[in-house]
Design a protein around this nucleic acid. Structure first.
Length: 570
RNA sequence: GUGCCCGUAGCGAAGCUGGAUAUCGCGUCAGACUCCGACUCUGAAGACCGUGGGUUCGAAUCCCGCCGGGCACGCCA
């Protein structure tokens, strides 16, 4: 039973009985239902101010009259207060319905299956070849991962794309540097770090000897032309970078279905350019080919440089079309920082001008910048935190706490990893994605308060209680044992879980799930403190254990959806 | 200069399809519990919700101006 809808139906009936025909439907009323700021005021409320005009009566009068006309067995009490109609629901029934539903649906609880038969393409993480993974890449990776999991949970066919940054003259420079100073074994052993060293050296020496740059360009031209040697080195660089990145992805539990990056679209741009030309969208400006977007308040989109070379947006146009043709997506998300807001507005606008109505299904999921202790990240300036270092530090810290608090734990290494990584990921997904993050070690490694470890701990605690209850006599649950405010808060959170997930998907906002997990954990901890679960009375005990089980299940699911594991002991 | 985004207690935030007394965490202070597991509970101090207008029965929430900060604005990605 949907409580909101049930309450809404009662109101509708009472409205009809009291004021005659009204043009309003039950779902309308359900949408207008609110949860009062204080549970002492009621469990649901309807503000009657909007009805005031249509009915030509004061809100206070409407509320008063409706209160007198409503009676239903699942409603405890109906009160009219200053134009608000407040409902008190029968709490035992409420708890029973919510818990029974959540437990019967199990791991599917929270999903309405609304994505079945639909496909979403998610572009996230999108690392650059020959660069190390640092904290600036965490948000795109984890937001993308969370959205990927959320969509799958709702039944979507999700395609995760790591749109590799593997195109540009810097790769020609890298090869030139490698040919001059590098050797296979050193790079194979040192990985990305060695490649970065070569690149840094190249740029340093190129300042003395600009001819080196020509050498770099020449190598890049060879890549473009498909020269076997150039391609072999280039592809090898890619595989070394991906191997390095894979290590981090494994720690984070992040996966992709495609690694088609910029170079992949090298031979797919010409048809797009031809099409732009055919549709009369392309025009020359200062030797370059552009799409004029002046009518839309935007600077022009540069499709071809004056030397004929393609640009970023040219590749993204080709990529958008390729994804549409290949995956037939119903939705395409780009999890990219807000610096590129304009780029995506231009991209989507050009798609629209090309006549692709599916441009509407493309969305830029933009997020804030990461700075480090107040300053911009700078790889060159050494002002940077590498992701692997951060994760390892977090894992070590978790390990130390485990040694102190639960030295007898069996799989300490695994749990340390789960908790350490959980802290970092949670930190990243905690705030609205649009907010900038100033990375500070002590905050990212915080395990107390609103943090991943706190939620994980609550989950482990629930597991512990359930373990202790194994083998005890079960009885018909007495749901009236869940009528107190603390248990009710937990029930309410569990009831809201499906709505929270839906909103998180609709708004592409994983932080809603992160927030929810904290709220549920807090509510459960209060409940747990105020009510003893393991009481002698079997009916009461069973009801409280069911609530504990529900909490465990929902916390685990919430954490999973934002990419965090939930150990059963810690 | 133009466009977009952000501005809520000392700090970090939530609340933004308008609704009752603006929540949460960190930190500070005073207590309680210390019973299943780093928890939890009670209370204190701390917010003219950047600012000025407007719309509305009602604005942190919507609209406009201003201030402060960030990002972006043709041949990088």
């Amino acid at each position: 039973m949907d409580f909101k809808l049930a309450v809404a139906n009662e109101i509708l009936t009472a409205l009809g009985a009291t004021f005659g025909e009204v043009e309003i439907t039950a779902p309308d009323i359900a949408a207008a239902l609110e949860i009062p700021p204080d549970t002492a005021m009621g469990d649901y409320a309807v503000p009657c101010f909007k009805l005031s005009k249509a009915l030509r009566k004061s809100p206070v009068m409407i509320a008063d009259q409706l209160a007198g006309a409503i009676q239903a067995d699942f409603l405890g009490k109906v009160e009219a207060v200053k134009g608000y109609l407040n409902f008190f629901i029968d709490r035992a029934t409420y708890a029973e319905k919510v818990i029974t539903l959540a437990l019967s649906e199990g791991e599917q609880y929270g999903s309405d299956g609304s994505g079945v038969g639909r496909t979403v393409v998610l572009d996230y993480s999108s690392i650059n070849i020959a660069k190390r993974f640092h904290i600036g890449h965490l948000s795109t990776t984890m937001i993308g991962n969370a959205l990927y999991r959320l969509h799958r949970f709702f039944g979507w066919n999700a395609v995760g794309v790591n749109h590799l940054g593997d195109w540009g003259t810097q790769f020609g420079k890298m090869i030139a540097a490698y040919k001059r100073w590098g050797d296979h074994d050193t790079v194979a052993a040192g990985g990305v770090d060695e490649m970065v060293k070569l690149y840094v050296r190249f740029n340093a020496e190129a300042e003395q000897d600009p001819a080196l740059n020509d050498e770099g360009r020449a190598w890049f031209k060879k890549i473009e032309d498909g020269d076997p040697e150039a391609l072999e080195i280039f592809n090898w660089f890619k595989s070394v970078t991906l191997k390095d990145a894979e290590r981090v992805y494994d720690i984070l539990g992040v996966k992709f279905d495609s690694y088609a990056g910029e170079s992949f679209y090298n031979d797919k741009m010409q048809p797009v350019i031809d099409e732009l030309k055919a549709k009369g969208l392309l025009k020359e400006d200062n030797g370059a080919q552009i799409v004029d977007l002046q009518d839309y308040g935007m600077p022009p989109a540069l499709i071809l440089r004056s030397d004929g070379a393609t640009l970023y947006i040219t590749r993204d146009l080709a990529a958008a079309r390729y994804r549409r043709d290949t995956y037939h997506f119903d939705k395409s998300l780009y999890v990219v920082a807000y610096q590129q807001d304009l780029h995506f507005r231009q991209l989507f606008k050009v798609l629209e001008l090309m006549g692709y109505d599916w441009y509407k299904n493309c969305e830029h999921v933009s997020f804030g910048m990461v700075s480090y202790e107040g300053q911009a990240l700078s790889t060159r300036g050494g002002h940077v935190v590498y992701l692997e270092d951060l994760l390892n530090t977090a894992i070590e810290k978790a390990r130390a706490i485990i040694e102190e608090k639960s030295p007898d734990l069996e799989n300490k290494d695994e749990v340390a990893r789960q908790v350490g990584v959980g802290a970092v990921v949670f930190f990243d997904l905690y705030n609205n994605r649009i907010k900038d993050i100033d990375f500070q070690w002590d905050r990212a490694l915080n395990f107390e308060g609103e943090t991943g470890p706190y939620v994980q701990y609550t989950h482990a605690r629930a597991c512990s209680v359930l373990r202790k209850a194994e083998g005890l006599e079960t009885a018909q649950p007495d749901f009236s044992a869940l009528s107190d405010p603390f248990a009710q808060d937990v029930v309410r959170m569990i009831e809201q879980f499906p709505d929270v997930l839906k909103a998180a998907v609709n708004r592409s906002e994983p932080s809603m799930v992160t927030r929810f997990s904290v709220d549920l954990a807090q509510a459960f901890n209060k409940f747990y403190y105020e009510n003893k679960v393991m009481v002698d009375e079997p009916g009461v005990r069973t009801a409280r254990l069911m609530l504990t089980d529900c909490t465990r299940q929902v916390l685990k699911q919430a954490l999973y959806l934002i990419g965090i594991e939930a150990p059963e002991r810690m």
